[in-house]
């Protein structure tokens, strides 16, 4: 039987209360959102803590998807299922629905949150790849105030983020630019499993040429990685199969997968290449109104 080690349970009533609790209890305390990463880690004694601060009552305050001119804001307590079902989100960024369809299973998606996913910083986390692809930033708050960090600054290594012991992730902010679309591709061994490799792409067009493009990969390095060399190679070019192939080759070169039970490093490089092509192809097709 797997049961966590003993701890004291506190329930935060709001964001300010959560921050006050973190301040008072110090580094011996951890927040729990959906608990679908943290509880398994506690059962395995990979996470040890004295106080657990339950932030599920903050869902009213931090569960939202707001589309505004120029940006979209997602509250950290928004659950996977809400992300999957949101039409405004799918319209602005179809990559979210693509990804959510293949994250875990419907029952897990009822509990897991976007905040928990990003803060877990698992190298295979799909929403991290999505947020990296979309050039998102994260609003973090502590008793000394709020700060906004880019995804590159947010990730410090596997399972490590810029969120301090006494801080909470409030929301994810995504810039909205015209004439763009996005897509997500994932290869998994079976339904509901973590990625062997997954890849997000976003493309913006100016007439016939690509004005900007971004690719984010998961499960092929210490953190989900954005690949600036692909953006450079694609800007100003007309989309074509040759161009996607070039981008795929850059993805394969720029990732650092390791061999594990999900596959060999060589196979994962092959997937990084192929999935990059597919995600870019699908993003551009979507810009041209081909609903795929």
């Amino acid at each position: 039987m797997q049961v966590p080690a003993p701890f004291e349970y506190e329930r935060a009533t709001g964001v300010d209360d959560a921050i006050a609790l973190l301040d008072r209890l110090g580094s011996a305390a951890r927040l729990v959102a959906g608990g679908h990463s943290l509880l398994p880690m506690m059962k395995l004694r990979l996470a040890n803590l004295e106080y657990l601060i339950d932030i599920n009552d903050l869902h009213g305050e931090l569960g939202y998807i707001e589309v505004e001119p120029g940006q979209l804001r997602v509250g950290s307590m928004t659950r996977h299922r809400e992300l999957l079902e949101s039409d405004p989100l799918a319209e602005a960024f179809p990559i979210f629905r693509d990804a959510e369809r293949v994250i875990a299973d419907p029952v897990v998606r009822n509990r897991g949150t976007i905040g928990g996913s990003l803060c877990q910083a698992d190298p295979s986390e799909d929403l991290s790849a999505v947020c990296t692809t979309l050039d998102a930033s994260c609003l973090i708050r502590g008793s000394s105030g709020s700060r906004e960090v880019t995804m590159a600054e947010f990730y410090r290594g596997p399972y490590e983020t810029a969120v301090g012991d006494d801080e909470i992730l409030i929301e994810i902010r995504i810039p909205v630019r015209p004439n763009g679309s996005s897509a997500y591709e994932k290869v998994e061994r079976r339904a509901g499993d973590w990625a062997v490799v997954s890849c997000g792409a976003a493309v913006w067009m100016d007439g016939d040429v690509i004005s900007d493009a971004r690719v984010g990969l998961a499960a092929v390095g210490p953190n989900t990685t954005g690949i600036p060399a692909i953006s450079e190679a694609l800007r100003g070019k007309v989309p074509s199969e040759d161009l996607y192939a070039e981008a795929g080759a850059i993805a394969a070169e720029n990732c650092t997968p390791s061999t594990d039970m999900r596959g060999s490093a060589e196979y994962k490089r092959h997937l990084a290449n192929e999935l990059t092509r597919r995600a870019l192809r699908r993003s551009t097709a979507r810009i041209h109104g081909q609903g795929v």
Binding site: G35, L39, N56
Partner: peptide, 15 residues
């Protein structure tokens, strides 16, 4: 009203 996996929810969280 939503299905959840009760091996991954604390009884305290269901309070």
């Amino acid at each position: 009203g939503e299905p959840v996996k009760s091996c991954t929810v604390l009884a305290a969280m269901a309070g």
